[in-house]
Design a protein around this nucleic acid. Structure first.
Lengths: 115, 115
DNA sequence: ATAACATATTGTAATATTGCAATATGGGAA
DNA sequence: TTCCCATATTGCAATATTACAATATGTTAT
């Protein structure tokens, strides 16, 4: 159906999957890489870095912004995007927690079930 | 168009985005959580854990397997899935490297450009 | 062999995603 | 103001994704 079912899932899983989904696209992952590595955050630089048309890049940028992975600030005539550390760190912590559960054979790791 | 352009992107970005995309769905992320937390890896347990029909879960499982995040082993009448640590760790290392680039203000972090 | 169970595959309908051209918007410069 | 420039938005068309019923496959027990 193309529609993703959301009922019956843990709210944290729902939220995280949405953020992670935004990272699951070459253009958007490349944007994150670029912003992580480059001192420049000017939108036009990002556009010229990617093999996609300007409207397409703009759409990907707004999707990353929507889920809180980047934030944009107007800087004169340009738009300056940068990584939103809060959103990014939340994903990293989520993954770290999952990894920890894999390592710990018999520990609880049931933080999401305590409700 | 629904089709994702791949030309002009770094091969690592292409591969990683594919794996991450598999994680960007509530059912598939819930499966990963379940396998990380639970000692059981029997397919039927996963199915009864999710609010989705059996064929749908089966498809999600095969997608996770396709990108190397889980692996399945036949165990008599049952199928036993578990996390493929190699694939999982590759994603974690990729993210760790990206995070490191964000922290390091003026270091190179250009490993992907050395080609 | 047959029944019962567990899982995978196929077919299909509904919806989502992607990409780009065209266009709109908004700021600075002339 | 008018002309650029940079970016966002809109409107498609093509393709991908999702979910499930129906069905197929394979395994174990009887």
């Amino acid at each position: 159906m193309g529609i993703t079912k959301t009922e019956g899932f843990d709210p944290q899983v729902l939220h995280m999957s949405e953020v992670i989904k935004a990272l699951g696209h070459p253009a958007r992952l490349a944007i994150m890489e670029y912003l992580a590595k480059s001192p420049s955050c000017i939108c036009s630089d990002i556009i010229s870095e990617l093999p996609l048309a300007q409207p397409t890049v703009s759409r990907h940028l707004s999707e990353l912004k929507k889920v809180g992975l980047i934030k944009g600030e107007i800087s004169g005539k340009n738009m300056c995007y940068c990584i939103d550390r809060e959103g990014w760190n939340a994903v990293m912590e989520y993954f770290a927690q999952l990894s920890a559960c894999m390592e710990a054979p018999t520990e609880k790791c049931n933080s999401s079930k305590n409700k």
